[in-house]
Amino acid sequence: MFKYQFRWDTVWGSFDFLMGGLEMTLIISAITLVLAMAGGLIIALLDMSRFRALRWIGVSIGEVVRNTPILVQLLWVYYVLPIVFGVRIEGLVALIIGLALYQAAFISEVYRSGIQSVPKGHREAAQVLGLTPFQAFRRIVLPQAIRMTLPPLASNFVQLIKFSSLGAVISVSEITRRGMELSATNFRPLETFTFIAVVYFFICWPLAMAIRFWERRLQAR
């Protein structure tokens, strides 16, 4: 270790290759976040449904997804779904489906707590003034709930950036996968993976700090 000769040039030489992977990572994370936000809404609506069967479906999806490892879920989507439906799924599609489902289960809880954070009295005030329950939800509850859910949603984006590295095991060409491929040819895992870790850190850390600041400002109101 002490006599190790750093060869960072092996990393710089493949800078564009790795940055292309980073671009892929961010695109995957963004697409997945949008899908997970929609999926989370569906699960949240199922959870809060008036019908028991729908509530049961919503709760089951949430519990299964939250209580199995994300890696196993990805492998399951990638290898099992094709067997069941008889179609070949590309790694990229499998990754997006798997991650979106996983995040959706958490985001549904974010929505739920956002809605529950609005005091009941605000809705009652609306009701007494003659607003219908739907009007009260749209005008009074939702705008307040959305403000409360934005920081946690942003945190989910940070998590997605990190989780998308799991795409490497199902050959999705995001930055971690490209790092694996690079280190297999340059035989320089130390430089390669250190560089990749630094890249992840300097994307996720400022985001996380900004979110913390944002949450503190919301709480101060």
Binding site: G121, R147, R221
Partner: peptide, 9 residues
């Protein structure tokens, strides 16, 4: 109401 329940947004 006792706690006003104005809409803060």
């Amino acid at each position: 109401f006792q706690h006003f329940n104005l809409w803060p947004h």
